[in-house]
Design a protein around this nucleic acid. Sequence first.
DNA 1: ATGAAAGCGCTAACAC
DNA 2: GTGTTAGCGCTTTCAT
Lengths: 343, 343
Amino acid sequence: MSRTTIADVARAAGVTKATVSHALSGNRPISEETRAKVLAAVDKLGWVPSQSARALANRHANAVAVVLARNPDVIANDSFFPAFIAGVESVLAESETALVLQVVSGREAEERAYRSLANGRADGALLLDLRVDDWRVPFLDELGLPTVLVGAYDQQHPFSCIRTDDAAPIRDIVAHLREAGHERIAHVSGPLDYVHSRARAEAYIDEMHGDELLREGDFTAASGRALTAELLALPERPTAIMYANDTMAIAGLSYARSQGLKIPDDLAISGFDDDHLSAHLSPALTSVSSDPAARGRAAARLLRADILGAQPRTETVDCNVVHLRESTSAQSSAVSTVSRRTP
Amino acid sequence: MSRTTIADVARAAGVTKATVSHALSGNRPISEETRAKVLAAVDKLGWVPSQSARALANRHANAVAVVLARNPDVIANDSFFPAFIAGVESVLAESETALVLQVVSGREAEERAYRSLANGRADGALLLDLRVDDWRVPFLDELGLPTVLVGAYDQQHPFSCIRTDDAAPIRDIVAHLREAGHERIAHVSGPLDYVHSRARAEAYIDEMHGDELLREGDFTAASGRALTAELLALPERPTAIMYANDTMAIAGLSYARSQGLKIPDDLAISGFDDDHLSAHLSPALTSVSSDPAARGRAAARLLRADILGAQPRTETVDCNVVHLRESTSAQSSAVSTVSRRTP
DNA sequence: ATGAAAGCGCTAACAC
DNA sequence: GTGTTAGCGCTTTCAT
């Protein structure tokens, strides 16, 4: 418990608290001589300003927040999140800003969390896992907490936003599958109230002219398996299944194999998110990498600007790359990594 | 920016600030009647106490910290970290405690980070990636910041500690490989100044009676590949390689294959950390799962107790489970998952 | 260029 | 049982 305060420093330097404060912030002219004395005293006492006192006086916390309403288990198996956070941190580190992470369960807890964040714990928030008509958007607007939406949120909103084109890679994969002769192409999506799940599903529906072979999953291996079973039990079963993440894809792949199907010859399979091991599976899994770190960096930069008072703006981070691999190409073996930037 | 303060609530309820404060904290007797009035006013105004003001007055932040001195990229590809954080959060959520995550580069930045955390940003810290003779241990002791060491730190220290037995799974795998007839067993470790890397390496050296086939990697795919190349170029090449994580193991596996070796017949391979896809690789990768979430929960509980003034104590969380799979067993195919609790 | 003093919003002695 | 008041450690007018 560092008991040294600005008063101790002031005393040691033979000046007042105000002078110490200004010597460090540069908020008013200070003679070189006294500044040197102050700096020496600071150094000698190893003083670091109290974050809480500073936050109270300044009305800002030097911290930004991410609130996750997810189940802790889901966080553990998500490959997007850690990379995203890493990207965020790489920007925040420049300005010695901290990241406050809060996991909540239930809407009431989440509201409390945002209220208390807005009340001195954080200067802004990053909103993930956006849902269609997300209640948090108007709520945070009312709280007046600078916020950046991470995801293509289409409703009215007053915030900065990091968009991604989720439709393009889906269309690309459909096109690829069709070239390979597939006609009955299914899609196991994520929960459709997530904006990104919906965007992908809509692109799929648009390409396929219908949702006959669309099934709504929840990103877990269990749902991947169950929905694959359902699809394969159809009178006319699909010959290809596109999954909304790699976890479901692999669960589906295992199930299909257990039913005696050969991948990709009997059933083509693609994932999404491109887990760092997916390229090493056998067959290597076709997937879409999306550079979550780049999105984290962009989001953090936008949020920093917003906090400093910039006008909110929308930025599209186009980093989806389709990796076509063995699991969708009957001529197997070759690890054909056709990378292609989405337009 | 919620402008409502405790004073507004007091006015609305027709009482003073002190009464409001106590009505909520229960720190002194309050008549049911006024408590009801206060609660109603709080509710009506949607008031949430200012974290910064409270932190300043109370000298505690309702937050704990994790400082990572890692490169952001490394965070993104680590399967331990997100699960650990998820475990931590599941405990912190109970007490509405926030987690402050800070990524720093360089020792000076790290010292500043801890100083400022100790100064009102956090009530305690979780120390990961422990190194032999870690400077942070005496440093945090001097700062007086309650801390929990996550890892088997053997030097003198005044903190609570979450230990894991890293040696046992290594011995198990060596034993398994020997039973399969292997004699030249190599180990590609993590950086040896990490206590867990060292513990594993020492167990290996002890089993093998030497470090002839030990190579020090850094957990990246690149180092896995390079050191595998080095080992396979040896006049008498190893017939088995144990890697300190799955990423290096898979990189090594790919390299070995590119040299025409069959896995596991020509070369047996094991990893560590049991990435959630490792069981789905082909051959399925022998690895060690370690339940990072359980360690996160234990660490958070210990830290909470420490902050509340409990005596520091050391707890061993024994959750290492060896998963023997195809990559180490010549009779391939069967996904033999021999799970076995380490003693 | 520097000092003095008034808060920031909350908690907790200290009255009554 | 409730009101008054003095801080917590910093920033920032307002003086000088």
